[in-house]
Deep mutational scan, measured.
Amino acid sequence: DTINITLPDGKTLTLTVTPEFTVKELAEEIARRLGLSPEDIKDTHNGKTLDPSLTLAEYGITPGSTITLEIK
């Protein structure tokens, strides 16, 4: 299953994830792909900052969802 990550420059990154991924694991994968530190990444969905300890499923993030990435 894939989700879309909207980057600060407007580009989109597509990642393969499972509903059990935590937001922290997602940030780590994004950081790895972009050459950043996971601590520099802030993920938001529907205007809410995502708690790193919760899973994508707990936020109702499903395949095809879009998450907005902010760099701290």
Rank of each mutant, 00 (worst) to 15 (best):
P38S: 08
T49P: 14
T2G: 06
E29L: 10
T12K: 09
L54E: 03
T44E: 09
D43P: 15
K42Q: 11
N46H: 06
R33Y: 14
I5R: 00
L36C: 11
P52Y: 11
I67S: 01
E28M: 10
K72T: 13
L26D: 00
I67F: 04
L15G: 00
I5M: 03
A27E: 06
S53R: 07
G10M: 04
T6G: 07
T6M: 14
E25R: 06
H45L: 15
L13Y: 09
A57G: 08
A27I: 15
I3H: 01
T16Q: 13
P52S: 15
P63M: 08
L54K: 15
L36T: 10
N46W: 15
L13K: 00
G64V: 02
R32K: 12
E20D: 13
Y59K: 01
I67D: 01
L26Y: 04
T6H: 14
V23R: 01
D1F: 14
G47F: 15
K48N: 14
T68H: 14
D40L: 12
N46L: 12
G47Y: 05
E39K: 12
S65W: 05
T14D: 03
L13W: 10
E39Y: 07
T44D: 09
D51I: 04
L26I: 04
D40T: 12
K24E: 04
E29S: 05
G10I: 01
T16I: 10
T68I: 13
T2S: 11
D51V: 04
T62N: 08
R33W: 14
S53I: 04
P63A: 12
P63R: 02
L15H: 01
E39T: 15
K42W: 14
P63I: 05
N4D: 07
L56N: 00
I30P: 00
H45Q: 10
T44R: 08
D9Y: 06
L13C: 06
T55A: 04
P63T: 08
T66G: 03
E20R: 06
G47L: 14
A31H: 05
T66S: 09
E20T: 13
K42A: 12
L50G: 04
L34R: 01
A27M: 15
L56E: 00
P19S: 06
P38M: 13
K11E: 10
E39Q: 14
I41S: 02
R33F: 11
